[in-house]
């Protein structure tokens, strides 16, 4: 068999993620590349459940379960302790959901980023509070159904622009990554390993039950998110230098292709879809300009 990403598995099967979970695959790819010399910190999120009940664990590295709002600051503390015992090499990794990042964890995240602590922060973004039953977060896209934004009043505001917030911290490395493009993801991880300071990864992670999607479509959806320019794969260095990796062509696929595979968008009317397309095009054009002026 041909292996295009590291072969060694650092996640055990038998974990508790749903069938076709994007967040589970994201962890599998991330740990393969960062390797055994890693300490994880999880706030409350699906991954605190996926890891399994005491005394079992699904990951082959040390793991610290912490309070919902504290992922970044706990990982900062672990890094400080590692430095204190003379081990500057071990990776300290915060791994949080979108709720734990865009909402409740944002002040701890901002603190660690502003101090430029030498650590990784990953948000696996499934666009809602999935673990507690699909409540909207500030990462939920405008128009989406969740249990707290029912179809008669779907989410009214756009998804928070977390990349702009992180870029404003002028941290050395920000990347978006997708489970549909594991080679791109591992390349970025390898690059980030060589960078001292705060590294932020935004991972697009489809959630079949939360998105009312078929588990078989998890990779298709992640791929379409990139191909429609909804979730471009990019890197931002020092908060200023933008590089768009994918999609290669500026003319993306229509957003309908992505929406129609998900029950959470089933109620959208033609006009809503048009509005969404305009939003995506505008945002992508802005990114292109940022890329152009930063080269």
């Amino acid at each position: 068999m041909k292996y295009t990403i590291p072969k060694e598995e650092l996640v055990h099967p038998g974990h508790l993620a749903c069938q076709g979970c994007g967040g589970a695959l994201a962890m599998r790819i991330m740990l393969k590349t960062l390797g055994k010399n890693t300490i994880l910190t999880f706030p409350a999120c699906c991954w605190s459940v996926i890891d399994g009940p005491f005394p079992y664990s699904a990951v082959k590295v040390p793991l610290f379960h912490t309070a919902f709002e504290t992922a970044a600051v706990v990982a900062s503390g672990i890094k400080a302790a590692l430095n204190r015992v003379g081990d500057p090499k071990t990776n300290s990794v915060a791994w949080a959901g979108d709720g734990g990042t865009f909402d409740i964890g944002i002040q701890a995240l901002s603190g660690s980023a502003e101090r430029n602590d030498d650590m990784f922060y990953f948000v696996y973004d499934n666009e809602a509070y999935m673990n507690t039953g699909i409540q909207r977060s500030s990462a939920t896209p405008k128009g989406a159904w969740t249990t707290t934004t029912p179809v008669n009043h779907p989410k009214a505001t756009p998804k928070k622009d977390i990349l702009a917030i992180m870029a404003a911290h002028k941290i050395p490395y920000i990347a978006t990554a997708s489970i549909a493009y594991p080679e791109d993801f591992t390349r970025k991880l390898e690059k980030a390993k060589e960078i001292k300071g705060f590294k932020f990864f935004h991972i697009f992670a489809p959630c079949p039950p939360g998105w009312r999607a078929n588990p078989k479509d998890t990779i298709t959806l992640a791929k379409l998110a990139v191909e429609t320019k909804l979730f471009p794969l990019l890197e931002i260095e020092d908060g200023e230098k933008y590089t768009i990796n994918l999609p290669k062509k500026d003319k993306g696929k229509p957003i309908e292709d992505y929406l129609k595979l998900q029950g959470r968008f089933k109620h959208l009317k033609e006009n809503d879809i048009k509005e969404m397309q305009t939003f995506i095009d505008k945002k992508y054009n802005r990114l292109k300009i940022l890329e152009e002026i930063s080269q």
Binding site: H12, L16, G52, P55, S57, K60, P62
Partner: peptide, 11 residues
């Protein structure tokens, strides 16, 4: 706890 078992118990 980490020195104990893995999720491989869960078929």
């Amino acid at each position: 706890a980490k020195s104990m078992g893995t999720t491989r118990f869960n078929k």
